[in-house]
Design a protein around this nucleic acid. Structure first.
Lengths: 194, 194
DNA sequence: CGCGACGTTGATTTGCCTCAACGATTGTGG
DNA sequence: CCACAATCGTTGAGGCAAATCAACGTCGCG
C-alpha cells in the first residue's frame, strides 16, 4: 500500500506519532477502480471515506427525469464519499463514479469511529478538512445566485485548471448548473470577444 | 450568563466533565444585540463563533450591484459566523445581521483554539456540527440546480416552518435565489391551485 | 395622519433550456 | 485499414422560467 500521500496530506494539519500511523495503516485499505466503475451508487449505504491517490471521480445526483447534477469532482489529495449516507449510514442520494483509472485509500465507517476513539487528533484533522469544504460549499451557493453562468465558468477555470483539463465539458456544465449546449455557446462567445 | 441551552446542545453530541464546563464558561461571553445590529460586517475580521440563545439573524452577501443574497438564517440553537473569515482570520465576505433582538453566546477565535487544546472532545463536537452543515449545504446546491423555485419554496416551508413565520418574504426569496416579485407570484399560484 | 417597510400585480425582457441537426474525433471489429 | 458507431462538442430555432421595471395596495407605527 502507498499511504505516503495520505500521511503527507494529514501532516499538513496535525502530527501523528509513529504508533498512530501504524494504527491507521492497520485500518485502511487501498483499492483500484477502473474508468466507469462506481464507488457509491444511489441507494447504497456509503461504507467508506475515500482519499484519492490518483485518478478522477465525480459525485452526482440523478433526478427523477434522469438528469445528472454534479455535486463535486475529486482528484489527487481530495476526499470523496456520499457524506450524508456515510455519517448516518442510510441509503445514498448521490453516485460516485470514476472518470479515470483511480487509486483510493478507503476508511470503513466502523474503523473510522474506532480511530476517532484511539487517535483524538483525527477529529481535529477532519474538522479542519470539512470546515474548509463547508466554506467552499457556501460560497458556491452564493455564487450560483449572484453570478451569471459565463463568469462562473471563468471562475471555475481559474480555480480548478487541473480538473478543467481532465473532464469533458458537458460535466463541467453540469457542475456549473447549466446545459452542455449553453456552455458551448458561452465558450464561443469568449472566443469571439477576444 | 445563561449557558444552559448551549450545554444541553453540546450534550447531544459529546459529554463534558464539570471541569470542562467551567473551563468553557470562563472562555465564552453572552451578548445582546438589537434588531438591525450587525454581528459581522463585510470587510471585518470575524472574531466570534456565535451560538443563538434567542432571536433570529441572517448571514448574507451583498454583490457589487448592491443586491443581497442570503446564505443562511440562524435561530435558537444554531451557530452563526462568517466561517471563512473566522478560520482564516481574514476580511469577511458576508454580513451577519440581527432580524430581532438577539441573545448570543460568543467564543472568540483565540479562546476557541485554546479550548480545542484543553478539551479535545470539542473538536469532535464541531466536527459533527460542521459535517451536518456541509451535507445540508451540498444538498442545497443540488436542489438549486435540479428543482424549480416553486418546489424549493415548498421544501423550505416544510423544512423551516419556524423561520418562515419569522422573516419577511423578500428574505425568503433571497435565500431561495429568486426575486421577491417572483416568490409573490408563486404564492398566488399556490393559493389559486388549491 | 403620513411615511416607510412590505407585498402584489402586470408588461416586458432576458438568460438559459429544449429539441434537433450536424461536425469532429476516437476506437474498434471485420 | 477502412467502416461505422460512440462520444463529445457545436450551432440554430423556438420556448419558458425567472428577472426587471413600474405602479399600486396595505399595513403598522412614530
Amino acid at each position: 500500500m502507498n499511504a505516503l500521500p495520505l500521511f503527507d496530506y494529514i501532516a499538513r494539519y496535525i502530527t501523528l506519532t509513529v504508533e498512530e500511523q501504524h494504527l491507521m495503516l492497520a485500518n485502511i485499505n487501498q483499492r483500484r477502480y477502473l474508468k466507469g466503475q462506481y464507488v457509491v451508487q444511489q441507494g447504497d449505504i456509503c461504507q467508506f471515506e475515500s482519499f484519492v491517490l490518483s485518478g478522477c471521480l465525480k459525485s452526482f445526483y440523478v433526478d427523477p427525469d434522469g438528469h445528472e447534477h454534479i455535486a463535486m469532482f475529486a482528484i489527487e489529495n481530495w476526499w470523496v464519499a456520499d457524506l450524508g449516507s456515510f455519517i448516518k449510514q442510510k441509503p445514498a442520494d448521490y453516485n460516485v463514479l470514476c472518470l479515470e483509472t483511480t487509486e483510493l485509500i478507503q476508511i470503513h465507517h466502523e474503523k473510522l469511529e474506532e480511530l476517532y476513539q484511539k487517535i483524538p487528533s483525527l477529529e481535529r484533522f477532519f474538522r479542519i478538512i470539512i470546515q474548509n469544504a463547508f466554506v467552499a460549499s457556501q460560497d458556491r451557493i452564493v455564487q450560483s445566485m449572484s453570478v451569471p453562468a459565463k463568469e462562473r465558468y471563468l471562475t471555475f477555470r481559474k480555480k480548478y485548471p487541473l480538473i478543467e483539463q481532465r473532464v469533458p465539458q458537458y460535466m463541467i456544465a453540469s457542475y456549473l448548473g447549466i446545459t452542455k449546449e449553453f456552455l458551448s455557446k458561452i465558450r464561443s462567445q469568449l472566443i469571439h470577444e477576444q
